[in-house]
């Protein structure tokens, strides 16, 4: 990849990693338009874990998809790591995701016939790295999330929490500037969910990286640095988990 969008973005930690201004998104549902986002103003910085919380159906996943550049917004500005993602051509956007964004999904989305290490190596393979090198690096990353002993296991031979940690390793292996996680603990029990969040905090959060975690599980709120609260397609407030005071975004 030689184009600019594909190049790794390296803006200083002081600058916000993600900025949304007046972002709207409507889905054409046949007879009527459904507005999933109704003017979102949102900001997340490098070096922090930003939670995005709110009731089911309020638009969290839609916002995360727009930020990650896998869903087009209807209107508004979206800046990710200093780039206007939605101004890019589809192929540049794809390259931008490949270089800069790590994904963690509620359903893990691991390929069942690949080992933990091979699954975690996929983002490096997508960048064109040779398989052995990619798998070696994936093994190091797996070790950093506490799965150093299980690199040869298939997903079916791992517990849910372990699978999600493989997914976290996969998201981190390419050292992206932005990590987007959609309800990473929703499929797990409380204890396991907490362990996964601990893993995420310990391995993902760093000075150079912004981590956005969508959740509606109050038990994991304490792991976030800040939390944006969402309702009916809008951000209603930003607060520090544990504190009661609400700062308006």
């Amino acid at each position: 990849m030689t184009d600019q969008a594909g190049a790794r973005s390296a803006s200083p930690a002081s600058l916000p990693a993600v900025v949304c201004r007046g972002v709207t998104k409507s889905f054409d549902t046949g007879d009527a338009e459904a507005w999933a986002l109704r003017g979102v103003d949102f900001e997340a910085r490098r070096g922090e874990m930003m939670l995005l919380a709110g009731p089911s159906g309020c638009g969290k996943t839609t916002l995360l998809s727009v930020i990650a550049g896998i869903l087009d917004r209807t209107a508004g500005e979206v800046s990710v790591l200093g780039h206007d993602v939605h101004a890019m051509s589809p192929s540049r956007k794809t390259a931008f995701r490949r270089e800069n964004i790590g994904f963690v999904f509620q359903q893990y989305n691991l390929v069942p016939s690949l080992t933990a290490a091979e699954n975690a190596a996929v983002p490096l393979l997508l960048r064109g790295m040779r398989r052995h090198e990619a798998v070696d690096r994936a093994k190091e990353t797996l070790a950093s999330v506490g799965l150093g002993e299980l690199t040869g296991r298939l997903p079916t031979q791992l517990s849910g929490g372990q699978q999600q940690r493989v997914a976290i390793a996969r998201a981190l292996v390419g050292r992206p500037g932005l990590l987007v996680c959609d309800e990473p603990t929703a499929a797990l029990d409380g204890t396991t969910g907490a362990q996964v969040m601990e893993t995420l905090r310990a391995s993902a959060v760093g000075a150079d990286r912004c981590v956005i975690v969508v959740t509606h599980d109050p038990r994991v709120f304490r792991f976030g640095d800040r939390m944006s609260e969402m309702l009916d397609g809008r951000i209603t407030g930003v607060r520090v988990p544990g504190a009661t005071e609400v700062h308006h975004a």
């Binding site: 794809t94 931008f96 994904f103």
Partner: peptide, 9 residues
């Protein structure tokens, strides 16, 4: 998933 992670057409 591959598409999201940046696999092109």
């Amino acid at each position: 998933t591959l598409k999201a992670m940046g696999a092109g057409n």
